[in-house]
Design a protein around this nucleic acid. Sequence first.
DNA 1: AAATAACTGAGTCCAATGGAAACAGTTTTG
DNA 2: CAAAACTGTTTCCATTGGACTCAGTTATTT
Lengths: 224, 224
Amino acid sequence: MDFLWQERVEGRRGPKPALTLDAIADVAIVVADAEGLAAVSMQRVAADLGYTKMALYRYLPGKSELVAVMLERGLGVPPELPPGDWRAALTLWAESLISAFVAHPWALEASAGSRPVGPRELGWMEAALSRLPDGLTGAERMDAVAVVAGHVRSIVVQPGESGMLAALTEHAARFPAISAALADIAVRGGHDQAFRFGLERILDGLERLVTQRKQASVKDSRSG
Amino acid sequence: MDFLWQERVEGRRGPKPALTLDAIADVAIVVADAEGLAAVSMQRVAADLGYTKMALYRYLPGKSELVAVMLERGLGVPPELPPGDWRAALTLWAESLISAFVAHPWALEASAGSRPVGPRELGWMEAALSRLPDGLTGAERMDAVAVVAGHVRSIVVQPGESGMLAALTEHAARFPAISAALADIAVRGGHDQAFRFGLERILDGLERLVTQRKQASVKDSRSG
DNA sequence: AAATAACTGAGTCCAATGGAAACAGTTTTG
DNA sequence: CAAAACTGTTTCCATTGGACTCAGTTATTT
């Protein structure tokens, strides 16, 4: 987890390092973008760099750390969110996040499970948190961001439709509700529709909570 | 994808198979539950069964198919949803799904990405779809279920808090919003709180949409 | 009943993986 | 200058998923 936060100390003994952590990660990202995360092996990355596999271990403890660095660089820095409407800000945030995931599909797999967190990832979290409306507890704020981020993830994963369609052609009768719904889906615009729909439901739900609380607190101050 | 839907044909020549697909998957599930999906190898599963690795390939084309079968069995059958309130039904559905994921944490990893879909997985989808309120298009119904399922997934993933806390102890100043929110989290009840919060926001958002449309259609029929 | 064809599980072999350990060469520090 | 620290390379290993072969078993066919 150190290497995610701390850059290399200068002025050490021995030969100058020929590589940098970032250069390694960038090559790995190129591989992952083109051929998937599975194609990223120490050997492959080292070969693409023109070095031997074990040279990388001078920069990284192991492969999982390489993936962590890839993720940090792949995510990029969070976008500048315009001031004003919190819904617009969160929408832009979610759109940017989904763009990052679409550009680097492996990032989804890489960001699953418990793992060390880097500064950029925290930057994304910070950006969203700071633009949430008032009237939520700290825990609720974390949860709210988690819901939006979870929605983005689930959109990118998209396990279903293609595999579902294949399975349904033979067993449509057993799953009438799916069949009926899918008949409608063929004529719409892919991911984006689903993304918008879910995001707006979530923001609506959030908005309802905060306005509800705002009204309650007004009533409170009036009566007390 | 065949083996997910079709059981073995009886009355074949040759020796009786010593194993069954389900028995193999069950052993693999035990391994995955105890030591994670990474510990599931053909060798390991075969050894636990008392057979050689290559024997398994008589039942499965490859490892990815084993994981697919594991997922089908691990998910189990969807719960019976009580009639009536659609919010209660969807809540129970989401709770059951999260229980399955908590019981089999590897199922999350296994269900990521595009993959063949089995009957039980479709059964879950069908169950949720059939209990959604009226007033949604087919595409929207799919999206609505996807949002809820995505929320469940994101709750189970829970990338953050532990790793985040570790990182924040040293860099709290750089991320004030996270620090403030996390200070609140220490005193609450883990996953469940986040799950409830997000689910209720989503259901609120859905409810708003359908009631909105119901009102619009009433007004419509009055004026036209 | 006998022959055949299909099937079984075991055994051997392979390329690729992540990683450990020891290596010779290079540069800074004492 | 010598020693210490660091570099990238080389050699080695266990484990992985999987292709292929082989002897043995059994249901179907003749």
